[in-house]
């Protein structure tokens, strides 16, 4: 810890907390609400210029160069990031729903494994292969999971659907023929409020037969 941080004692801003602990799954840690608006929190922010870094990310087999803060999550880059060329990344399929790794709405694949993009710092995604829901189809040819979701009406409002699609595809990457119980386990990190689960289970079974 730096002297400055020591002086602040128990007052921790999200940014300083991240600096102190380094990177990892603390991205969604929030400032205790008692500190919001407090003098300590303000002090932690004031005169503390935000440093940024320019990083490269491989998303859906395309390289993006983005400027990020240490605290910037992968999800923020996907949804709100701007490439240094000036184009918005604008991959808004992954959603921010719970903001703390509970609902799976932001699920993407990192090197083939499903990851909560709200819980991963953008800088930690460097050098990895990121696949979002937008990158699953091969041109007009939908991924079998996508086809099956349409066929079985495994979606209603559709807000959780990108997360479920990516989680289902990642599940089938690891387990070609999952049982119903294995499907439930594989998708247990995703939440749907419309209640589409029964048809999601059907869709994953259908997709597994086609893959």
């Amino acid at each position: 810890m730096s002297d400055k941080e020591k002086k602040q004692g128990t007052s921790i801003s999200r940014r300083n907390f991240l600096k102190g602990v380094g990177t990892g799954t603390v991205a969604a840690t929030v400032v205790p609400s008692v500190l919001i608006g407090s003098e300590e929190a303000a002090e932690a922010q004031a005169g503390d210029a935000i440093s940024t870094a320019t990083i490269q990310l491989n998303i859906n087999e395309k390289m993006y160069e983005v400027e990020v803060e240490a605290r910037t999550t992968l999800l923020t880059v996907l949804r709100d990031g701007t490439d240094t060329s000036g184009d918005n990344v604008d991959l808004t399929g992954a959603k921010l729903i719970c903001d703390r790794g509970e609902c799976g709405g932001c699920t993407v694949m990192v090197d083939g494994k499903s990851v909560y993009a709200c819980m991963m710092l953008a800088i930690d995604a460097q050098g990895k292969k990121i696949t979002t829901v937008e990158g699953l189809a091969n041109g007009d040819d939908l991924h079998p999971v996508q086809e099956a979701f349409i066929q079985h009406d495994a979606l209603m409002c559709g807000f959780c659907t990108p997360g479920f699609i990516v989680s289902s595809a990642a599940l089938l990457n690891e387990n070609k023929k999952p049982t119903l119980e294995e499907i439930k386990t594989g998708l247990s990190g995703n939440t749907c409020r419309c209640g589409t689960y029964p048809f999601i289970f059907d869709a994953v079974k259908t997709a597994s037969r086609k893959m």
């Binding site: 808004t92 399929g93 699953l136 939908l142 999971v145 996508q146 349409i150 979606l155 807000f159 990108p162």
Partner: peptide
């Protein structure tokens, strides 16, 4: 009948208010 919005929703193309930039 499968829903018309299905393809947009499974590919992430469907734009919700939250997705408007």
């Amino acid at each position: 009948i499968t829903r018309l919005s299905g393809k947009d929703k499974v590919t992430g193309k469907a734009k919700y208010t939250f997705d408007i930039n």
